[in-house]
Simulated assay, not measured.
Amino acid sequence: MNFDTFAKWSAASSPYLAVLSVFISNWLGRRAARAKVANEQKMIRYKSFYIPLIKQLYNTKPGMRNYYDLRSSINPQTKQNCFVAFENIFFEHMEFQGEHLPLKIVELEVTAENAYNDLQLALNSKFSNAPSIEEAIEAVEKVNRIFDEIIIEALQESESLARTLSIEPISRPLLKSYLYEIHRRPKLREQLAKERPDYQLQKPIPKT
């Protein structure tokens, strides 16, 4: 292609190139705007649900980070059991949670209080129709496991969001600590035996 031909081609194609340039510029602008909005939404999620949960976990003694101990302890400031603080965070910010957390939180809510009350009834009631202590212990252990699943998943989601937002993943050491606590946490039966030396817990029936 000689210079004259190139000049004619350039002159003829200039309007199309100008339109294409505007189109590309607008497309890149919209893409950047969408990315900015997406990051802003992630930051809102991070600050609204994950940060309050992380703060609450850091403010809770490591040995008490389980449903049974939280439910059995009273906050001297609020005069409520310590699980209420977590319950409020779970339900007040449900729209900012990951895909699977809300269902687990609902499962926790519908089973936790009944399981705890049945255990207290089994431990303290002399009625013959009181719940079996073995079944009550297992029910509370199941609630503990659901609570653990919620916390672990939430901390993992928090770390993922932090990486996406290029901020310090402050949940990472907390997750490591929490997993270690689960490994060292005594079985509820053993814990109750220490807390209630006056109560002779039934020995589990050996499986045949």
Rank of each mutant, 00 (worst) to 15 (best):
A193K: 13
W9H: 12
F23E: 01
I182K: 15
E168I: 11
I152V: 15
F23Y: 08
K8P: 00
L28K: 00
K126R: 14
C82S: 10
L201Q: 06
M1G: 10
Y180G: 15
R45I: 01
K79D: 12
E181Y: 05
K8Q: 09
S25T: 13
V22G: 02
N26W: 00
T164A: 13
K194S: 07
K47H: 10
A85H: 04
A33M: 01
I205P: 11
P204C: 06
D69K: 10
F86H: 03
A193E: 13
R71N: 04
R145F: 14
K36T: 00
V110Y: 13
G98M: 02
I54H: 11
P169T: 05
R185K: 09
R45T: 05
W9E: 15
L119K: 06
A115C: 09
N2H: 01
L179D: 07
Q41W: 07
Y199D: 08
L17N: 02
F91A: 09
A38T: 09
K194Q: 09
R189N: 06
L119V: 06
K55L: 10
Y178C: 03
N117M: 10
Q41M: 11
P52E: 05
S10A: 14
M64E: 13
V19D: 00
T164Q: 14
E195I: 08
R31A: 11
A35T: 00
K36S: 00
I44F: 08
E40T: 11
P186Y: 01
G98K: 01
T208A: 10
T60W: 03
E157S: 09
R163I: 13
K79T: 13
M43N: 11
L192T: 07
I170K: 11
V106D: 04
F91L: 14
F23V: 09
R45K: 11
I151N: 04
F96T: 12
K207R: 15
I137R: 03
R172F: 14
F147V: 04
E109S: 15
F83L: 10
Q56S: 05
Q202V: 12
R172Q: 15
Q120P: 05
L20I: 07
A122F: 04
Y46F: 12
A122P: 06
S177V: 06
I51W: 08
S10I: 11
L165A: 03
L174M: 12
R31I: 06
S10L: 14
A130T: 06
Y68N: 04
S160H: 14
N124P: 01
R71P: 02
S13G: 02
N81D: 12
K126G: 15
T208I: 09
I205L: 14
Y178A: 02
I150G: 03
T111V: 12
E113V: 12
V140Y: 07
V19A: 00
L17E: 00
R145Q: 15
S166A: 14
P15K: 04
R71W: 07
A38Q: 13
L108V: 04
Q77Y: 08
C82I: 02
Q202A: 14
S160P: 08
E134A: 11
L70G: 02
R71Y: 09
S14E: 09
P131G: 05
M1Q: 05
E159N: 15
K126V: 07
I152L: 06
K79F: 13
V110D: 11
R71S: 10
R185F: 03
P206K: 07
Y180D: 15
F91C: 09
I51V: 14
S13K: 03
R31G: 03
F23D: 01
T60P: 01
I146T: 10
